[in-house]
């Protein structure tokens, strides 16, 4: 597994430098430069949204800093949670006087550091709430949301909560919307080949040349089954079937769909999957609104894809359609 890198110890910082140089709407901030924030922050009086997470998943997390999405992002090392200092800085920089929603994926290190940051900021009087992304159905049963990891579907929570915050909603309302969006999102991934951490000598997991793993996590966490590669349509069918077997209670007839590449899978293959996914969802009586196909949440050079379904009602549909602008997702 070859990589176009320099010193692995500089992987994150050099990539963040490139990110902010290529996309001037983003800027590095914080004592160690491990917060990405909007170059032109929202005017005061808006509820702030701070996110964060380990590195190696771009465009997630830092790439979704923008208007109508999240305000700041704390950035950890590759596949490690962000440290507490960067979480404190991300919350402070997101604060516009009406409180801050901490919105990030359900992983141990991320949780501990955002929790500690909140405790350390209590004296500063910044009201904080937390919503965790828990959309990965392969990591826990429907009755075990605390066990479920946050994966690609987190960007729908960014979109909905970001739109609510931009419209002037208060912290309680933005928090309610974020939690509602998470509860309405389901994701499953399929892995074809592992990635390698820049500091590691070997790939992060072993998968045979002719094998795939259904339900794999974005760090290579084990999934539901591992077996021989099969045609794209069969994989798409199983992903749709598993996601529709796990419907949120209030699911209606409209969904948005994110057909996401994990890093090294070409657009062509994502489109082959998407056409089958669309047919299957239509066959199940669902209407697709604002589909997304591409690399939205990756694991460096991991090969594979994930499918997220965002179940819409009138409220979430309007929030999804509201204007938003970041380097990797533009609406309106």
């Amino acid at each position: 597994m070859k990589k176009l890198i320099n010193d692995p110890a500089h992987y994150v910082d050099e990539a963040l430098d490139g990110l902010t140089l290529a996309f001037p709407s983003l800027v590095r901030d914080g004592a160690a430069g491990r917060v990405i924030r909007r170059t032109h922050p929202a005017s005061r009086g808006k509820v702030g949204i701070a996110t964060g997470g380990g590195f190696g998943h771009l465009p997630l997390f830092a790439g979704y800093v923008g208007c109508g999405l999240v305000d700041t992002c704390s950035v950890g090392n590759v596949f490690e949670g962000p440290n507490v200092d960067s979480c404190i800085e991300a919350i402070r920089l997101a604060d516009g006087g009406r409180g801050v929603l901490r919105l990030y994926g359900n992983y141990g290190g991320d949780r501990m550091n955002f929790d500690m940051a909140g405790e350390m900021l209590e004296d500063e009087g910044i009201a904080c709430t937390t919503v965790l992304g828990t959309d990965d159905i392969a990591s826990g049963g429907p009755d075990q949301p605390a066990r479920r990891r946050g994966v690609a579907g987190l960007i729908y929570a960014y979109k909905a909560a970001g739109a609510a915050a931009r419209s002037g909603s208060d912290l309680d309302e933005v928090t309610r919307i974020a939690a509602k969006a998470v509860a309405a999102t389901r994701t499953i991934g399929v892995g074809l080949a592992a990635c390698r951490l820049p500091s590691a000598a070997k790939p992060s997991f072993d998968l045979g040349d002719d094998e795939i793993e259904m339900g794999i996590g974005i760090h290579g966490e084990p999934g539901i089954w591992r077996d021989k590669l099969r045609p794209a349509d069969m994989i798409a069918d199983e992903m749709v079937e598993r996601l529709l077997a796990d419907l949120p209670p209030a699911a209606g007839g409209e969904v948005s769909v994110l057909m996401n590449g994990l890093g090294a899978t070409p657009m062509e293959e994502l489109l082959i999957l998407y056409r089958r996914v669309r047919a299957q969802l239509q066959g199940a009586g669902l209407t697709i609104v604002a589909p997304l196909v591409g690399n939205y949440v990756t694991s460096m050079e991991m090969q594979g894809a994930s499918l997220s379904i965002f179940h819409l009602d009138a409220e979430l549909k309007a929030l999804l359609a509201a204007p938003a602008d970041c380097p990797f997702w533009r609406v309106g």
């Binding site: 380990g54 090392n77 962000p82 290190g109 501990m112």
Partner: peptide
């Protein structure tokens, strides 16, 4: 330790 990582094990040790 807290400056060096936000990983769960590292954070627990720093804590």
């Amino acid at each position: 330790g807290m400056s060096a990582t936000g990983s769960s094990l590292g954070t627990l040790i720093s804590g």
